[in-house]
Design a protein around this nucleic acid. Structure first.
Lengths: 229, 229, 229, 229
DNA sequence: GATGAATGAGTGTTCATTCAT
DNA sequence: CATGAATGAACACTCATTCAT
């Protein structure tokens, strides 16, 4: 059940960045260094000031280069934002449990491990998630991307639920797709509140266990690893 | 279970607006009319252009008054945004089921009715919800408000779950507060995708029924209205 | 023959400005004053620096107002340029000889008087003519306008030539339209060299008399005021 | 009478380029090729975008070399513009009728042939003429050059008119220099409208014949090849 | 109370030119 | 010779807010 609650930002990142939006990499070592410095600084500045209130001048100053140099590597503020997301995508994406090898006799264990990995990744990139939220409300391209991501993950989760049903673990009465749409946001939203909005009072462990439990009960999977009666 | 999925925007509206942020109403009839025109136009403009890309000039033009007049009634763009939300609050808030009178022998029915009313309200104000999302990412005040709201509703929902447990309907093993936090976002996020982002493929009826079913199963409430064994 | 050599800039000014490009005038006296100051300064700055090398900041500084105020009255640099031309149009246009009342027995006299008035007007606005030339090479709108103007004046001149032919003064073998196209640029170009490019060596009087003479000979009008044999 | 209407661009090209402005040619074959590629691409880019709106980056990209390489051959944008004009000068300049060998008993024929050759050349380089017009309005050096050219050609034309007068073909009353200044722009301006501004409605043939006719009549040269009475 | 003119700091973006490699 | 990264001054335009009338 690796990407069960996929609706949230982190797991959708593989498709977050439209690579066609980023131009080719610089050829020289110096160029690579400068570009990397710009992306690194941009992430800091974006996280600190938000996308809208950030200034290109701050980014170039932090990267020790001129404003003109910025435009050697990026066409716009939007483009470096895409690059920042792209650079973070690998880290934001936890390893992912192999779907095929899942031992369905231990659904709870797999689910919890996956959720824990997810929350860790979310935590590392909490500010970036908040940022993405902001940009999605402003830039139609990002909004569209987000919508497509949500749908893709729901479908993936739906297939996983179907597999649990076919194997006799999950309640066969449930509609796999709609149930996936309902369950997907759970962990993501809790992580959003805890790590992005920094709401106190919920432990990391608690949200992982709660999300896992809700999934199990909602899918009707027996907690003891047995199949349904 | 009236406000079960409280994390979402609509049900949180009673606390959405910080009334201290809005100055007193105008005294003359003419003043009342002008103010109302400004708020009405502002809603249109905000929904069309978003908060960030909207211009005060468009709002005053639509309300047939000068920019100077705007400042007779509002101190800032933020303040008229608050006023817009305040004006919409009543409509965004469905009647609400009396908590005390709930007939717990029909939890499913109450929950579904509540959810349906909620979705209807959400639908009527979809654009406004998107807007609020945007402002929350920019303005710390609104973000804070949102956080407080989320907590308040989770607590309310937690009390309701506790009541179900005490009455022998809901699984007593569950932690009421954490479970409330997990279940709250479900309907809200689905409605967000369907009505705000206008994602096709999910019917209004389907999301209401799915959310209701997930709540029932997750809380361990028997579907037939009986108490737990 | 008032506007005979119309191809040149000055006489085309009535149609130079596309009034639809200029927004409505300010309502208050103060506004009128500010706008006028902006237009007056803009003319000076444009004449001194050219359209391309002029800076809005110089214009507003000269008009003792802020840059923001500029945008209260004009949408762009192009728009204030249009306004400058519009303001100059009246002066650039000499009174014009009544076409209908022309006493054809004195074609040379009428033509010379018209040409002289034209050259005077050109002289007063020489820098502006140079400026217009520049803008026409850059802005397609102005280029198009110029083309239309040229055609309209050629047609007017052609009608005047036709009238001379019909009255027995001008050579009936000539094609009125083509001849008009050939003769139109003569005075304009000479004035351009003398006043705009400030080429020395040709007196005002000399260019007027030369242009008049060429017109007379090319049209085959007897210099003594008589009709053709 | 080869360069009679010299005011126009094409015939002035021999003096168009100030060769002192262009540095020495590269020594290696490869260098020659690169320079040629730059000039060829520059012409295309200038014609497409105009001088002001053209970018060096487009030129070097089209010539498959780096921006740095550009500065190996040229010191500035102005310099490559000069080189473009220089490269085009040969083609822009029609063979030219020998002045000395002119058979004055066929002035009309010579004039028409010359004019036709001129128009053909103009047509081939119409965009370049437009371009030169633009640069002349911006760059003082080019404006000065243009002024000098105009004067030189007027003087040449004046000498030719003088010769016609002395031979008894042209009206001896006319001032040769002033008349040359008046007649010079005629064909050039018509060609400018037809080929550069692409104004429809005038045929190539018509403008050649009209210009020739006006010259003949204005100079008082009998159309039948005879001398004046 | 209403008006609308005035403000001006703020910022993304361009591009000819330089220079280290 | 060639490269292409680096430079940075320059500038038009926005718009929330203020204030004189």
């Amino acid at each position: 059940m690796s990407e069960a609650e996929a609706e949230d930002v982190v797991r959708e990142l593989p498709t977050l960045v439209d690579t066609s939006r980023v131009r080719e990499m610089p050829t020289t070592a110096r160029g690579v260094r400068t570009r990397a410095a710009l992306v690194a600084t941009a992430r800091q500045v974006f996280e600190r000031d938000g996308f809208i209130n950030s200034r290109l001048a701050d980014i170039t100053a932090g990267a020790n280069c001129s404003i003109g140099t910025f435009y050697t590597y990026f066409d716009s503020k939007e483009e470096i934002f895409t690059a920042v997301m792209q650079a973070a995508a690998d880290d934001m994406l936890h390893p992912g449990l192999s779907r095929v090898d899942d031992d369905l006799s231990n659904v709870a264990g797999i689910l919890e491990a996956s959720n824990r990995a997810y929350v860790e990744a979310y935590k590392r990139n909490a500010k970036l998630n908040l940022l993405l939220e902001q940009v999605a409300t402003i830039d139609p391209d990002f909004r569209k991307l987000r919508l497509e991501r949500g749908k893709a993950f729901a479908e993936r989760n739906a297939r996983w639920i179907k597999r649990l049903q076919d194997a006799g673990y999950a309640n066969p009465e449930l509609d796999p797709y709609m149930t996936a749409r309902a369950l997907s946001p759970i962990l993501g939203r809790m992580a959003y509140h805890v790590f992005a909005l920094e709401e106190p009072g919920m432990s990391e462990d608690a949200i992982v266990r709660t999300a896992t439990r809700v999934w199990m009960d909602a899918l009707g999977v027996p907690l003891d690893g047995s199949k349904r009666a």
